[in-house]
Simulated scan of single mutants.
Amino acid sequence: MKVLIFGAGQLARMMYLAGAPLGIDVQAVDVSNEDVVNPVTKDKLPLSLAEALDAADAISVEFEHIPEALLEQARLTGKLLPGKEAILTGADRVREKRLLERLAIPNCAHRIVDNVEQLDQAVDALGDKLILKASRDGYDGYGQWRLAEREDLPALKQTLAALDLKKVPLVVEQMQQFERELSLVGMRSKDGQLKFYPLAENLHHQGQLHVSLAPAPDCSDALTGQAQDIFSRLAEGLDYVGVLAVEFFQVGDQLLVNEIAPRVHNSGHWSMQGADTCQFENHLRAVCGLPLGDTQARGANVMINVIGYDGLDLELLKVPGSHLHWYGKSVRVKRKMAHINLSAGNYKQLGEAMLALADYLPASHFPHVLGEGKRLQAR
Rank of each mutant, 00 (worst) to 15 (best):
K79M: 09
N115S: 13
R95A: 10
G141V: 08
G141R: 09
L81Y: 06
P169W: 00
A161K: 07
A74I: 01
S135T: 00
L49R: 04
Q158H: 14
D120K: 15
L163Q: 12
E72T: 11
V123A: 09
G138Y: 06
A122C: 08
E64T: 08
P106Q: 13
D140A: 08
A86E: 04
E151H: 13
V168W: 03
A155L: 08
D92I: 00
E72I: 12
L45R: 07
Q158A: 15
E151S: 15
E51H: 10
V123Q: 04
S135A: 08
E149I: 05
N115Y: 08
A148Q: 15
W145D: 09
L49N: 08
E117Q: 12
Y139N: 08
A148F: 12
A162I: 13
I59H: 07
A161E: 05
V171T: 06
R146A: 14
L88A: 05
P67K: 05
S48M: 02
S48L: 07
T89S: 07
E72D: 12
R93D: 04
P46T: 09
L103H: 06
A161T: 10
L88F: 02
E96L: 01
G127V: 04
G141K: 03
Y142Q: 13
L130I: 01
E96A: 03
E72M: 11
S135R: 02
N115Q: 14
N115M: 11
A91L: 00
R150L: 04
I87M: 02
N115K: 15
A162G: 09
P46A: 13
Q158F: 09
R95D: 02
L76F: 10
D137F: 14
L49V: 08
L165S: 10
V123M: 05
A50K: 13
D92L: 00
A125V: 05
E68V: 15
A122M: 06
D92E: 05
E173Y: 01
L163C: 02
L81A: 15
Q73A: 14
F63M: 07
N115I: 05
L153I: 11
E72N: 11
K44M: 04
T159S: 13
I131W: 03
L47A: 12
Q121T: 13
L160G: 05
T159W: 05
L132Y: 03
K157N: 10
S135H: 00
R98L: 10
L70I: 11
V116H: 10
L119C: 07
S48H: 10
P154S: 12
K44D: 04
E72L: 15
K44N: 06
K84P: 06
L153S: 11
E51A: 15
E64Y: 03
P106V: 14
T89Q: 05
V94H: 07
I87T: 05
E101M: 12
L49K: 02
T89K: 02
A56S: 06
K97M: 10
A74Y: 00
L153N: 11
A104Q: 15
D43T: 14
V123Y: 02
R75Y: 08
A74H: 02
D43P: 02
A52M: 00
D128M: 09
A109C: 13
A162T: 11
A104W: 01
T89W: 11
K133M: 04
D54E: 15
A50R: 06
I131N: 04
L160A: 09
D137A: 08
S135C: 08
L88G: 06
H65I: 07
L119E: 06
G127L: 03
D164I: 09
V116G: 02
P106R: 11
I112W: 01
S48T: 15
V172E: 01
E151P: 03
